[in-house]
């Protein structure tokens, strides 16, 4: 279906430069911000750059949902997002409560919330595959 392919192509055209900006932003911040730096203008400015890229990812994913014309494929994407969000909220909330009551538990850096959510997307894709079957399952080309 041409519309779906176009939507996915546009998503990748947005995703790739945003990812490059994220990696560049992290590299720049790592190079220029010393360890234990004060929260001054420079630190905040350099930290905001990769943060903007994360917002860019969320925007690109939102646009994918808007531009996907095929309602079934859109539903599968939404399910992935819901699984990722649920998994991230559950894991971080449970770990947070554990941190609250035990000082021996290692702190979970908030930086890893987004990577955890992305991992949740993979779990969501697996969940889709298990509940809706593979894309080829049940196919009838007759």
């Amino acid at each position: 279906m041409a519309g779906t392919q176009q939507a996915r192509r546009r998503y990748m055209m947005r995703f790739l430069p945003i990812t490059l900006a994220y990696v560049a932003g992290i590299a720049l911040a790592t190079a220029l911000i010393p360890d234990h730096a004060p929260a001054d203008v420079r630190t905040i400015s350099l930290s905001i750059l990769p943060g903007l890229a994360v917002i860019g990812w969320l925007w690109a994913m939102g646009r994918l949902l808007v531009e996907l014309e095929d309602e079934y494929l859109r539903m599968l994407e939404v399910r992935k997002f819901l699984v990722a969000t649920g998994m991230t909220l559950a894991a971080t909330s449970m770990w947070g409560i554990l941190e609250l009551y035990s000082p021996e538990v290692p702190r979970f850096p908030v930086f890893f919330v987004m990577p955890l959510w992305c991992l949740g997307l993979a779990v969501g894709a697996l969940f889709n595959r298990l509940t809706f079957g593979s894309m080829k399952a049940g196919a009838d080309h007759s």
């Binding site: 279906m1 095929d70 079934y72 494929l73 809706f132 079957g133 049940g138 196919a139 009838d140 007759s142």
Partner: peptide, 25 residues
């Protein structure tokens, strides 16, 4: 008609036709 034929007529993906046909969606 194949699933793809119907999908083309409906302007949806073949996966959509398969999911509807099998009652999954």
């Amino acid at each position: 008609w194949s699933q793809q034929d119907l999908a083309d007529r409906l302007e949806v993906s073949r996966q959509s036709v398969n999911a509807i046909e099998t009652g999954k969606y």
